Each structure stands twice: as C-alpha cells, then as structure tokens.
Simulated assay, not measured.
Amino acid sequence: MQIQDHPAAAGTNSGAPVGDKHKRDRQDGDGATPDLSSKRMRPPGVRSIGWALVQAARLHRARTGDRLAKLGLFAGQEQVVQALAAAGTMTMGDLAALLRVRPPTASKTVTRLAALGIVERRAESGDGRVVRVQLTEAGLAKAEAIERIQEEVEAELLDHLDKTDRRRLRKLLRKAARGLAEAAGASGQVTEADAEIEAEDETEGLPA
C-alpha cells in the first residue's frame, strides 16, 4: 500500500520545512527580510519645545548634581543656598516666591538644610508666625563652592551660544516659566531681579 504525502507538503518538492514558507512570506519585495533594528527610532514628542527643554534641564541637573553630591547636597538645594547668600535673610514666603515654588516645598528644603547645619531659622521679632531664614557660617562656605559649580556647568550649557543667543534664551525661558507659574497658581509675579534683567536687555536692544 502506497503512503500518501501530507497535505501541508503538497505542491512542494524542495524538502524545506514548513516554517521556511512563513519566513519567505515575511520578506519584502526584494527578497530581503526587513531589519527593524536599522530603522531610526524617534521618541514621542521629540519635535516639541517641552521635550527639548526637559532634555536640556535633565542634563543640566545631572551635571550639577554630580558636583553637588561632593558637597553633600542634592540638586535643587543649591538654589535656596544661593538665594540666601544674595539676600542675607528671607522669610519663608519671600523665599518660595523667589524660587517660584509653593511654600511647603520651600519649607521642606529649608528643614533638610537646617538639619545639615547650612541654614538656621528664627522667628520674627514681635511676630512668631513669621519665620526668617539665613545661612550659617558653614552655609556661606557652601554658597561659595556652589557658585563655582554653577559657573562650570553654565559654561558647558552655553558653550555653543553667542552673547545674543544667551540673552534671548534667558529671556524666553523666563517668559515660559512665568506662564507655567501662572497656570499652576504658584506665582506669576515679576521679581525685582527679573525686572532689572529685562530692563538691561531692552537697553542693549534685545527684542521683546
């Protein structure tokens, strides 16, 4: 008795496994199997301004964070130290407004810095509800080290920008930050420092 061929093999004479047919079906028109790994992968939102801003901020934060870690600080804490170094003493409300963050956020950072002996808090004379913050001697030393770190990272950030581009970028980022602050209800006000810088830009002929 003769044994008949299996239906799946009917019409073939190459003896190739059935799986080879499916492989051939996956081939493109010229007979080559598509190589998905060769396609250029583009992250979602890569063309948005927000995406570019986040990437630049992330890299800037990482570069700053690496250097701050050697001082025993985390990225973000240096902003409080720098603000106090410039102002001498500030209320918690003024500090939060300057940094454009909510008061609880500023308070949490100050608490951590106080535990490190970098800042100290004192109740306002005559009104215990108002708390003023200032740097300790150790905090002043940290402020000087932070300033050097900021100069190093700033030079890396702006290395490919000329003077005009730097002023324009600074101005645009201030406007963007103000818009987000207004949307979040945190603080839409123009600080005195912002007003001074904007006045300087206008004097130098930088377009609004």
Results as ranks from 00 to 15, higher is better:
16 A>L: 13
77 Q>G: 09
19 G>E: 11
103 P>Q: 04
58 R>M: 10
150 Q>H: 15
37 S>W: 09
125 S>R: 12
139 G>P: 03
33 T>V: 12
208 A>T: 03
173 L>F: 05
53 L>R: 14
184 A>I: 03
12 T>P: 00
111 T>P: 00
11 G>E: 11
144 E>I: 11
2 Q>E: 11
78 E>M: 06
25 D>N: 13
51 W>G: 07
118 I>M: 07
151 E>N: 14
134 Q>H: 04
47 R>L: 08
107 S>H: 00
66 D>P: 01
13 N>R: 10
172 L>F: 05
71 L>N: 09
170 R>Y: 11
127 D>V: 13
44 P>C: 04
179 G>Y: 03
139 G>R: 01
147 E>P: 00
176 A>R: 08
24 R>C: 08
15 G>L: 01
88 G>K: 01
45 G>W: 02
44 P>D: 07
115 A>Q: 15
18 V>K: 09
106 A>M: 02
130 V>K: 09
96 A>C: 06
26 R>T: 09
6 H>C: 07
26 R>E: 10
140 L>A: 12
115 A>H: 07
116 L>M: 03
29 G>L: 10
68 L>I: 10
133 V>K: 01
63 R>H: 02
25 D>W: 15
46 V>A: 12
135 L>R: 01
47 R>W: 05
76 G>F: 03
192 E>C: 00
152 E>K: 12
154 E>A: 14
160 H>D: 15
154 E>I: 10
47 R>I: 03
50 G>R: 14
86 A>E: 03
50 G>E: 14
114 A>E: 14
162 D>K: 12
176 A>Q: 13
136 T>C: 08
30 D>F: 08
165 D>C: 11
6 H>E: 01
98 L>D: 02
111 T>K: 04
119 V>D: 01
11 G>I: 07
200 E>A: 06
46 V>W: 15
69 A>S: 11
180 L>V: 12
88 G>L: 02
108 K>Y: 08
10 A>C: 06
197 I>R: 06
17 P>S: 08
149 I>V: 15
206 L>A: 03
194 D>F: 06
83 A>P: 00
140 L>K: 14
183 A>R: 13
138 A>W: 08
15 G>T: 01
110 V>R: 00
65 G>P: 02
125 S>P: 05
187 S>V: 02
95 L>T: 00
105 T>C: 02
4 Q>W: 04
23 K>A: 13
144 E>Q: 10
197 I>S: 05
31 G>W: 12
25 D>M: 15
137 E>S: 14
21 K>Y: 14
25 D>S: 15
120 E>Q: 14
181 A>F: 02
137 E>Y: 11
31 G>R: 09
191 T>R: 06
142 K>T: 03
155 A>H: 12
85 A>C: 04
